[in-house]
Structures are given as structure tokens and as C-alpha cells.
Amino acid sequence: MNSATVRTLLVRGMLTGIATGVLVFGFAYLVGESPLRSALVFEAAHETEHGPELVSRTLQETAGLATGVLFFTTAFAGIAALAFCFALGRIGRFGPRATAGLVALGGFVTVFLVPFLKYPASPPAVSSPDTLNQRTALYWLMIALSVLIGIAAVVLGQRLAPRLGNWNATITASVAFVVAVGLALAFLPAVNEMPEGFPANVVWDFRVAAAGMQLLLWASFGLIFGHLAERVLEPRTANAPTQQAVPPQAAPAPH
């Protein structure tokens, strides 16, 4: 029964990821492609050699972008649904919808916001291909560190709650999270490869678009999955109080 509940939640999480992916793709196509195209114009004007184009630009902007976005949103929605299963009832007295919202907030902060502060999304032609291996390793390391610090902070908050109370335990755990993340941000190597003359407004627009995509992803995941999860879990959460609160109807009051 419980394993089946986890499976149902996981399936609904991934379906939420697909629905979210459609929204995020629409946003990325409308808002993100414009600065991306500007960056490609800059690249075309400055590059010395050009390899053969394997996939046409039209396909990259439509089907290619949709594939990347849907893989990403489905994968993270699946992982977030599993995180929701662990978090439910363990991070405080929150119902399914509030838990989904908190998991989504945690996902946005640890998977996107913290890594973005150190290694922000960059349009094409900004970074050197020679450092790609190093930058890829650093980015995944930053995500892993940020998620691990986030989990550690939640566990710390849980441990402190009986002694300090929920409010102070939450504040202490949040401060610990910010300090640990700050140290990680300070000590990981910086990447500064912006080429001479690259239009700053293109970089800004691109990063706003990238941040908007993630905000849309995690916010809609929290809202949609919270609703779906509550409908899965509702029979149990709703029945328990109802069975006790409603007296049996067998004996009608005499007139």
C-alpha cells in the first residue's frame, strides 16, 4: 500500500514535470531565444572557424529546446516527488500542499539559485571550449554541494526543534545553510571568461530568462504537484478526523 502510494506520487510527479516542461518551453522559446540569437550573431561576427552544422537552428530552437527542457523538468520533478515522499510529515506539521511548496522552494534554491550565484547561465560564445570539462565538473559539484548542505540544514533543524522550538530551529538551520553555502561560494574557483565587447544587455537578458525558466518550473511544480499529491493522500488525511468527529447516524433524534 505504501509502496504503491510512492509509485503513484512518483508517476504524478513526472506527469507534473511534463506539464511544467510545456510551460517552461513556451517561456524559453518566447523570452530566452531572443538573447540566445543575439549571442549567436556576436559569435558569427567574431569566430575564426566554424564546424559543420549537424542540427539546423530552426530545429535547435524548437524540437531541440523542447527535448532539453522536458528531460530537465521531468527528471527534476521525479526527483522532487521522491524528496516529497521523504519530507512528508518529517519536516514539520505540513500537509501535502505545503510540503510540496517547501520541496519546490528547496529545489529552486539548492538546484538552481545557489549554483547560479557562482556559475550563472551564460549565452553561447561567452565561455571557452577549452575549459568546458572543468566548468562542467564545477557546476555539478556546486549543485551536489548545495543540495547536500540543504539536506544537512533540514536535518539540523529537525534535531534542534525539540530544544529550541520550531521557529528558532528553522532560523538556526537557515543561517547555518547560508553560512555553509557562502563558504562554498567563496572557496570554489571563479570562472570569468567574458570576451571583449560582448553586449552586456544580452548577458543580462539571457540570465533573467534562465532564472525565469527555473522560477516557472519550481513554482508550477509546487502548485500542481501539491494539488495532485493531496488528492492521492486525501483519503487518509481526511478520513482520520472525520471518522471521529462525525457521530454515527444510526439513532435519529426522536421528534
Partner: peptide
């Protein structure tokens, strides 16, 4: 790489 290239950049992953 080329197929998911735009998504890779916009989703924040390192590329070129």
C-alpha cells in the same frame, strides 16, 4: 549536444 544545445545554455549548464 547540438540537439539539446539551446536548452543546455538556458537551463544553466556550462557549454561554449
Amino acid at each position: 549536444h547540438e540537439w539539446v544545445h539551446d536548452g543546455r545554455h538556458l537551463l544553466g549548464f556550462p557549454c561554449h
